[in-house]
Each structure stands twice: as structure tokens, then as C-alpha cells.
Amino acid sequence: MIRAAVLWLAMAGAAASADCRDDLVEFRWDGGQARFTVEVADDEGERAQGLMHREALAASAGMLFVYERTQEAAFWMENTLIPLDMIFIDETGRVTRVHENARPLDRTPIPSGGPIRYVLEINGGLAARIGIAPGAVMRHPAVDQALSAWPCG
């Protein structure tokens, strides 16, 4: 079950938690920060299911897809009932691409646009509203801390 938590802080210099948790992702970029409570999909079955058949997603929630290795990936919205933003993230935790407002029930592939290691799905249109764009960095314990652009600690 997705749990709602603190959504985002859209102010420069806002303090963020130094502790990383499996159920929380944090982002920062020039001028803002965001925080989402997440479910982690880190095996083939969980990634295949994703957010299909859900009728709603809390504004502060998302699903983090974690791959075993850096690779190109593609998503589609078959059996997904709500519009989603897909935030593609490299092995260092840096956002490389944001696909906004993926259409529910659409089978058109949505490519990562290059090698990625993580994808965060959140409510459609939210990334643009709060400022998440390529160059933002994500913090989560799944990111190899030796490579992380924003390590836990």
C-alpha cells in the first residue's frame, strides 16, 4: 500500500533528511527539493506489474523501478488507469529524462532515451509543476553510494 508523506519543498536551501530509507526518494535541483514515499519494484515481476490497475496515486507517492544493471528501458501504459510522469535516472542518481503525462491504457513504448538504472513514476504533470527536470539528483539507498551524485549520510 502506498503511504502518503511530506510531498515537496519548493524552496532553495530547504533542509532534507540525511538518512536514506527504502520507502523514500528525495530529489534536489537548483531552487528546489522534492520527497516521495515509494514502493520499490526491484525484480522482474514487480517491474512488469508496476502501477497497473490502480485507480489513484497519492500526490506524495510513486513507484521506484530499480534495475540490476544500467541499461536502456522502455515502458508502456497498458492496464495503467492513471496518467503518469516517468522520471528516468542514471546510475549516479541524476535525472536524464522526464516523460510527462503518459496516457492511460496506451501501448506506445516510452523509451528511456539512453542508459538508465532507475525510473520513478509519479502522478502525471507533477514533475513539471514542482520543477523536477534533467539534471536534478535523486537520493535513495538503492543508488551505489560510491557513485551517487547525492549520497546518503
Rank of each mutant, 00 (worst) to 15 (best):
V143T: 11
P104R: 12
V137M: 04
T96Y: 00
I130S: 02
Q145Y: 06
G50F: 13
M77K: 06
M1K: 07
M63N: 05
M1G: 07
Q145L: 11
A56F: 14
W8E: 04
L81W: 06
A41R: 06
V137T: 11
G113R: 07
G135N: 08
V143R: 06
E44K: 12
G32C: 00
T92K: 13
A16H: 03
A73I: 12
A73V: 15
T92Y: 04
P104I: 05
E46I: 00
M1T: 12
F36Y: 15
A59T: 10
I110T: 05
V66T: 10
I116C: 06
M86C: 01
I116P: 04
A73P: 01
A14G: 12
G114C: 12
S148L: 10
A149D: 11
E68S: 13
D144C: 05
D43G: 01
T96R: 14
E78F: 07
E39D: 15
D19Q: 13
R69N: 08
I116Y: 02
S148K: 05
A149L: 03
N101H: 01
H140C: 11
H99E: 14
I89F: 04
L57Q: 05
G131N: 03
D144S: 14
A18C: 02
L64W: 03
R94L: 00
C152G: 03
T37Q: 15
A102E: 08
W76Q: 07
E100M: 04
I122A: 09
L147P: 09
A5R: 15
C152M: 02
R54G: 12
R117F: 01
V98D: 00
V38I: 15
W150P: 08
T92N: 05
G13W: 07
L9H: 13
I130P: 03
A102T: 09
Y118P: 11
V25G: 10
R129Y: 11
E46V: 00
V38G: 01
G114I: 12
A14L: 02
A127P: 03
F75P: 14
R94N: 05
R139Q: 12
E100N: 05
A59L: 14
I110M: 04
G31W: 05
R28G: 01
Q71V: 10
A12N: 06
L64R: 08
N79D: 15
A146T: 14
D23A: 14
A59M: 12
R69E: 15
P141Q: 06
M11G: 05
M63E: 11
D43L: 04
E68F: 08
G13M: 06
A58K: 13
I82N: 02
A136C: 07
L84A: 13
G13H: 08
